[in-house]
Amino acid sequence: MTHPPLQRSGLVGWLYASRCALPLVWAQRAVDDIVEKSIPRNAALDVTGALLFTGSRFVQFLEGPAQSIATIRQSILADRRHHDIVTFLSGSRAERVFSNWSLAYAGPSLFVADKVENLFHAGIKNTNEIIDLLEQFVIIAQADKP
């Protein structure tokens, strides 16, 4: 699917992080369920993006039409599986970063978990750091799949 640039489509993005509210033994099954349901929903809403789950924290970047992102955002904010939701970026986008994925998710990674925690402890100075981390992780994980 080809996605037009912002000037013609009103593209917006939302980057957030949250803490998982579920016990670790249930968390991965819940994340698998989130991914399974989100992929077709995002595709239907013309939303693309990527999700990281570190075992204790969610980090997600979504991009698409403003109304679609607002709908998904409302759903996420009401979801009891996580709390302490922090928005790092919300607004217009010049182009999509994850145009090939309605929701890119490759499973948990200790390497990524450490990187995410380091970003939070050092203080997020540049949201592009998080988006770049998501993009790198997705590309590497997709390349490793058969």
Rank of each mutant, 00 (worst) to 15 (best):
Q28E: 13
A141G: 15
R19T: 08
D144S: 15
F137A: 04
M1L: 10
A141D: 11
T54P: 01
I85Y: 02
A122P: 07
G10W: 10
A106G: 15
Q136M: 09
F111S: 14
F58C: 00
A94T: 13
E129F: 05
N42Y: 01
S102M: 03
P23N: 12
Q67V: 14
Q7R: 10
A143H: 09
R8N: 12
S56W: 13
K125E: 15
A17R: 05
G55D: 03
A70T: 09
S109V: 13
A27V: 02
D79V: 00
V47M: 07
F61M: 12
D32A: 15
L119A: 05
P108Y: 13
P108G: 14
N100R: 12
K115D: 15
A66D: 11
V116S: 05
R57Q: 02
D144M: 13
E63F: 02
D132A: 14
A70H: 14
Q60M: 06
S109M: 12
K115R: 15
L24S: 14
S18K: 08
S99M: 13
S92T: 10
L51P: 00
I130W: 03
I34H: 00
A70L: 13
Q60I: 01
Q60D: 05
C20L: 07
V97P: 00
Y105M: 08
D144K: 15
L103V: 05
F88S: 00
D46Q: 10
A104M: 05
S102H: 05
D114H: 09
S109H: 13
F58E: 00
H121W: 15
D32E: 12
P23R: 11
G10Y: 08
D114K: 03
T127A: 13
V12E: 05
H83N: 09
A122R: 13
A66M: 09
R93S: 03
A30T: 08
W26C: 09
I140L: 13
V47T: 05
V97F: 02
D84Y: 02
L22I: 04
K125S: 13
D144G: 15
F88Y: 11
G49A: 04
R96T: 07
T127F: 06
A106P: 01
E95I: 11
A104T: 02
I69D: 02
F61A: 07
Y16P: 00
T2A: 14
S90R: 09
R80T: 06
L110Y: 08
V31D: 01
L62E: 01
V35Y: 01
V86A: 10
D84N: 04
A78I: 06
A50V: 07
L119K: 01
R19S: 12
F53I: 04
T87P: 00
D132S: 13
G55W: 00
Q136G: 11
K115N: 15
L110I: 10
G55Q: 06
G13F: 03
G10T: 08
A17I: 03
V116C: 07
P40A: 08
A44P: 04
V138A: 04
V86D: 07
L77N: 07
N126K: 09
N42R: 02
N42D: 06
G123P: 06
I72K: 00
P108S: 13
P5N: 04
V35E: 01
G123D: 07
R57W: 02
Q67P: 11
L89N: 08
W14P: 00
F111K: 14
T54A: 06
A27L: 03
Q28S: 14
S56C: 08
G55L: 02
E135W: 08
